[in-house]
Nucleic acid binder design. Structure first.
Lengths: 217, 217
DNA sequence: CTCGTACCGGAGCAATCTACTCCGTTATGC
DNA sequence: GCATAACGGAGTAGATTGCTCCGGTACGAG
């Protein structure tokens, strides 16, 4: 089975022997870490991560100085993946298709699954900058989709971000969950103008709603 | 502020003095427990529950023999609320309206928020029976909605159940989150035939998908 | 007013769990 | 065959947690 939500695209130069094992371990470690953090939240333990990766605890600590270190790395990676997905989406001919492929990519990679934990780590200025970049590309993507006319006018970038985060929490250890795919298809159809049965409730949430979770502590 | 997702409808006979305090404590305890369990999952602690309820740990243990006991009680209550909501939905004139009000009620009360923890407790036969009753009334509700014609034909009761569970995981400590309302409105619009842009992916999930989480251990 | 009592809060404890260190082992590359 | 780099995981100190137990507090009957 291919790793659906694999954290790194590819090990750049394929090496041999012990070094290959090391590179492989590194990737499996990140994959496993994201799975376990997403599934167990605060209750995630390093031993569970190592076990899921099929790696000794020692190998984990040779790469990451601490549990928090690992989580920080994971968050950064997730944000970068988000940005990549947005870039790809912006290159699509059709704005709506671009937005949908962005959402699909983020959900598949479970980019949002770490958000609930983000408040528990110290955030570096670099991470803030990356987060801002991510928000900006999402804004573009949504603006373009609005111009295209197929996206409900009352949907904001924040709605999209939360949607992705919501699906990130879905059944994290059951990768090939068909249920997630079905619900996602439902939600995406709901984003389209054709389904609009009434305006979305409430005032659109402010930026504060989004940044709160990456801030403080 | 009124407790939106309050666990019990009402204290039946309003008493006075110490007994009133006891009854109030009991309700606040259940509310707090659900909030904390939903928000922290496995990492929920009894002290956090007691603190959120504004109650001493002693008072908690006078009512429930153990943490697991409390959780079991909570699950049962949630299932009963689900059944109540279904009954109400079935009484609505319009099948679609009935289904929507069921979904709204379940999401508001966060009926599904405990599902991820359900696998960690021993399930009594009574709980199984209640769960079955709940599934049956949901089946009815969905069948009626299908006949009504406004619900997408490819949506199954299980899709609805998972949808509710998904939204139960949403931002559990931020009760009046407007974001949740917006996404829910989106998802509900997606359930309607008018939005159907294509069939839902994959084979419809079997019952096994649903019962798995309430089973074993 | 006074006393019995029912309920309260939370300090403290034993047991468990967890992040992390350290070292003996393995096998690769020269 | 040797130096070395990566490995796995037992062990440890410390933090955490579920739960017990008891001294206090205020209600309400007499």
């Amino acid at each position: 089975m291919t790793s659906i939500g694999c954290v790194r695209k590819q090990a750049d130069p394929p090496r041999r022997g012990r070094q290959a094992e090391a590179a492989g371990n590194d990737r499996r470690l990140l994959d496993a870490a994201r799975d376990v953090f997403a599934a167990r939240g605060e209750a995630a333990t390093v031993s569970a991560i190592a076990e899921r990766a099929g790696v000794g605890i020692g190998s984990l600590y040779r790469r990451y100085g601490s549990k928090e270190d690992l989580l920080r790395q994971l968050c950064t990676l997730a944000m970068e993946q988000t940005i990549d997905a947005a870039k790809e989406g912006l290159q699509a001919d059709d704005p709506w298709t671009g937005l949908v492929s962005y959402i699909r990519a983020c959900v598949t990679q479970r980019t949002g699954s770490l958000a609930p934990l983000a408040g528990t780590i110290v955030t570096t200025p670099q991470m803030w900058a990356t987060a801002r970049r991510g928000r900006r590309s999402l804004d573009q993507l949504v603006a373009r989709a609005h111009e295209g006319g197929r996206l409900r006018t009352d949907v904001t970038p924040l709605d999209i971000a939360w949607l992705i985060e919501l699906f990130g929490r879905f059944d994290p250890l059951d990768k090939d969950s068909i249920v997630r795919e079905r619900l996602l298809a439902l939600a995406i159809d709901g984003l389209s103008t054709s389904s609009q049965s009434g305006p979305l409730p409430g005032p659109a949430p402010g930026t504060r709603h989004y940044e709160r979770r990456w801030g403080s502590k």
